[in-house]
Design a protein around this nucleic acid. Structure first.
Lengths: 221, 221, 221, 221
DNA sequence: AATGAATGAGATTTCATTCAT
DNA sequence: CATGAATGAAATCTCATTCAT
């Protein structure tokens, strides 16, 4: 019967600040030790709380793990939804999404590590409320891609889901590498390279430069 | 003091067949239960061996985990190296690599699950001999991409490492989805869609429609 | 520093009504969950008080347990002592005690369960003030039995303590069965059967029925 | 897959002797500390085994508790069934049962304490296989009592179940007292007193002495 | 007087791993 | 070679209890 409680991403908390502290500590420790190797004692020490207190806030170690993305992903997606309408053009929107996506991980390395190395491999995460938001943020991509197909910014013979899978796969691959190997230094600056490739592909564009066209035609004769 | 031992991916085995049985059992169990949840007892039961026997073949549960990709990845890369020279054109080679890559996972769902959900998140895997082969198979991609850049099949302003990251990211994203969600049904048939997108990009190509082509051809004569 | 306190079975209470509420809640919860399984939180919830409040009234969970019989047993024994003198004959007095004893438990099933399944097995209960009253109520029996021996209502070759043990054992056995198995439906109606058996025993009484007497007498001649 | 196991009261044991040792140690420790207070570590130490070993033999602390009566009660009831047929007369049989019953506890004080103070209050014990045997040993009593009623050794207006309840209640009350208070010194020697009271009751028998018989006979004529 | 919040203190239980046979 | 049996070493989680407000 808590007389006065607060909400932290859907959870009633006695002291929401302490809840956030614990989550941050968990993020830090999980990122460094992995889920199994990290102990609740480690997290308690890092958060300067007792182990029992952690269980006052989270019913299990796994629930604490799943609490890590909850707040972050919510804010992330909220802001995306807020800004997207102000951007003109599907390509620009896509570039924005990709940049935000990379920046999210680039700015929160521990968070990135937890998501890429721990959460992604945990099937229970799929049942999570946070995962719902992940899915809704995936829809951002599909919608933008479809928008681009409609207004002929993008080719009409592409498969939006596959495009989204490629973009996410690319980003996740790069972020995972960064978590594991520490490179590249700056993830966010890859935005343009990724966009260019996604937009233009590998094959040289016929007519993109007259010179190349000529060469090609002649060689084929 | 084994009188007669055999090699199984660099390891001396008393009975190489039993070693392989254990690895297969481990693959099966890990794929279903995850690394931590799966017990050595589970694997022993599945392999119809005693737990102690497993320790005759592998010094730890984690070593057993790392043994799973060892043989598979070796054969995979060996065959790649063998066939690649017979394929003409960088684009064709890339298509071949992508198809092989997808088929590897499509044909071995348990293997796919273990690699995507368990091994990818384990930093220790990076120290593994198997990971060396993974890296060498990554080089296939870079080499082929560089080849394509040289002979103008591919644009020269691309970043081979990024392209490879995109392709791998795409494949791993799709395979992970398949492991977790069970779809799409057939991974391997995505090869063409992936290649087309990678090759041509999202932006409509000025020479993509026949009319434009005609114009082009005429103008070059 | 309570400004105005009250007594509840020898304990100073800030608010005697709340103390009784807590005891009743404890009785209810302990009866259903057992001592160890029941948590102070359970009791607090049932009593609609905070856990901390419980500790304002009782210094420990065990003290709360021991508080359950305190008031009940006091009133029970008080009334016994009050009424007994008005009953004529040791047999009648015994019948009265047995009936009261059974009715006490029959009328308070939760109380019965707590006493039979929890308190009886707790050696610390013996040190309790309540246990003193239990003992004094046991003396009722012994005194009545001795009275019956003196005035030849009862045989003189019996052992009062054993008789009392038999009666108590019988009652406790029946009450325990009722707590655990739910039968028989009505404990109090067993009074007569118990008394008859205790009074007359199993062996057929010579002369109890004329017919048997004749037979017996003839055969003995 | 144990190749060679043994049975200990229905349970497959790796090493039946060690299983029995653990049970004995548990009996000892539980009798002294109670179920909750006793730790598995205590029992392990007493049995000179590791805690883990205990869990190789018993899946939980409670299962270990329930294992305590298993073997004892089985042998007890087996022997009862074996000997009963050789005893003439229901009264003699009853005396035998009561004596055996008391002796069982008198000879095994720790066992008595565990049964009386711990097991009796545990509702889960009712679901136990051992409890089935307890019930079957209760049937001994009812059968003997019914036999006595048939052949007129016992009065025909008694309720066998109640008689049995009285006898068991008496015994359990006495054994519980012995466990808690340490007296009386010798339980088994109470057999005769109990039997006499049960057989003859409290009320002086009008035909118990020849003189009274005469009186009766005359008066009935 | 009442309680929300925090925690100290363990106990049970689980397994990977070892070793004698 | 194989394995049955034993265990060391922890880690999660639970609660009774305390204390500041």
């Amino acid at each position: 019967m808590p007389a006065k409680t607060s909400k932290y991403n859907g959870k009633s908390f006695k002291n929401p600040k302490k809840g956030a502290t614990i989550v941050k500590a968990a993020e830090h420790v999980f990122a460094r030790k992995g889920f199994q190797t990290a102990t609740v004692a480690d997290i308690a020490k890092k958060a300067r709380v007792s182990e029992a207190t952690i269980y006052e806030y989270f019913s299990s170690k796994e629930e604490l793990l799943f609490a890590i993305p909850a707040e972050t992903i919510r804010q992330y997606q909220e802001k995306n939804r807020e800004i997207l309408p102000y951007i003109r053009g599907a390509a620009n929107k896509l570039r924005f999404l990709i940049h935000r996506h990379l920046a999210l991980y680039a700015d929160n390395p521990d968070y990135a590590t937890v998501v890429m190395l721990i959460l992604k491999g945990n099937p229970n995460f799929l049942k999570t409320e946070s995962y719902q938001i992940v899915q809704s943020s995936a829809r951002n991509y599909t919608e933008v891609i479809e928008e681009g197909m409609k207004n002929n910014e993008f080719r009409s013979d592409i498969e939006p889901h596959l495009i989204r899978a490629m973009i996410w796969g690319t980003i996740e691959h790069l972020v995972t590498r960064k978590s594991l190997l520490g490179k590249p230094e700056d993830l966010a600056e890859l935005t343009d390279d990724i966009c260019n490739t996604i937009f233009s592909g590998l094959t040289p564009q016929q007519g993109a430069s007259p010179i190349q066209v000529d060469v090609r035609v002649h060689s084929s004769e």
